[in-house]
C-alpha cells in the first residue's frame, strides 16, 4: 500500500480512538508505529510529544504533524494531520446534524467516564514501560518525580517543565564531561561527511 495512504489511515484510526488530550493518543501511536510497524523508535515518540507540548497549537495535532513529518516529510505531516482530524470532522458533523437537542448526551458521558478510566490504566502502563526502557539512573528518577510534583501540586505550565528539564539535561551531560566528548565526536563526524 502507498505509504502516505497508510500514514493517513493509521492516524485516522488514532483520531477515532483518542479521547481527551494529546497524551491519550500515545498508547495507540506506540502500538501502531513502534510495535506493529517498527517505523519509529519508542524514544522518538516521546521526543515528538515533548515538542508538541511546548509549541503553540493543539498538542495532538502537533504530535501528529511531527510524527508524520518524520515518516515522510511535509507530505507525511499533511497525511497524518488530515487523518487525525478527519474522524472529528465526520463524528461532530453527524452529531451536530442529528442530535439537535443533544438528547443522547447522557449516553456519551457514561461511555466517556469509563473510557477515561481505561485511558488512566493505559497511561500508567506506558509510564511503567518508559521507566523500564530508560537509563534508570537516580537523576532520571529525580527529574520524573520533580516534573510530576510540579505539575500536580503547583499546576506549573508543561512548557516550563520541558524547558527546565532540557536545561537540566544539558547541565548534567556537561558536568559529567559527556557533552564535551560528544561534541568532539560530532565535529569529527561532520568534517568526515563533508569531505
Amino acid at each position: 500500500m502507498n505509504k502516505l495512504l497508510k500514514i493517513f489511515l493509521i492516524f485516522f484510526k488514532i483520531g477515532s480512538f483518542t479521547f481527551g488530550g494529546g497524551y491519550a493518543m500515545l498508547p495507540i501511536i506506540k502500538r501502531e508505529l513502534v510495535d506493529n510497524l517498527g517505523w519509529i523508535k519508542e524514544k522518538d515518540i516521546y521526543n515528538y510529544y515533548a515538542i508538541g507540548q511546548s509549541t503553540p497549537g493543539i498538542i495532538a495535532v502537533n504530535t501528529a504533524t511531527m510524527t508524520g513529518y518524520s515518516l515522510r516529510g511535509v507530505k507525511g505531516a499533511l497525511a497524518a494531520t488530515t487523518g487525525f482530524i478527519m474522524p472529528s470532522l465526520i463524528i461532530i458533523t453527524l452529531i451536530a446534524t442529528f442530535f439537535k437537542r443533544f438528547q443522547q448526551i447522557d449516553l456519551f458521558q457514561h461511555a466517556f467516564a469509563a473510557i477515561q478510566i481505561a485511558v488512566v490504566a493505559l497511561i500508567i502502563d506506558i509510564v511503567i514501560k518508559m521507566w523500564q526502557k530508560s537509563d534508570k539512573t537516580k537523576v532520571s528518577l529525580l527529574i520524573f518525580l520533580l516534573a510530576f510534583l510540579l505539575l500536580v501540586i503547583f499546576n506549573i505550565s508543561p512548557v516550563f517543565v520541558i524547558l527546565g528539564s532540557a536545561t537540566a539535561g544539558i547541565l548534567i551531560q556537561y558536568f559529567r564531561g559527556n557533552l564535551q566528548n560528544a561534541y568532539y565526536n560530532y565535529q569529527n563526524d561532520n568534517q568526515g561527511s563533508d569531505e
Binding site: Y46, V119, L146, F148, V161, I170, Q173, A182
Partner: peptide, 27 residues
C-alpha cells in the same frame, strides 16, 4: 544528532514521563 539537542532530550524524556503521569493523575 547535535550533542546539545541530545543532552537536552536526555533531560526532557524523564520529564515527559512525569507529564504523562500527571495527565493520568488529573484524569
Amino acid at each position: 544528532q547535535h550533542p546539545l539537542v541530545e543532552s537536552a532530550f536526555s533531560g526532557i524524556r524523564p520529564a515527559v514521563a512525569g507529564l504523562i503521569a500527571s495527565a493520568a493523575f488529573e484524569l
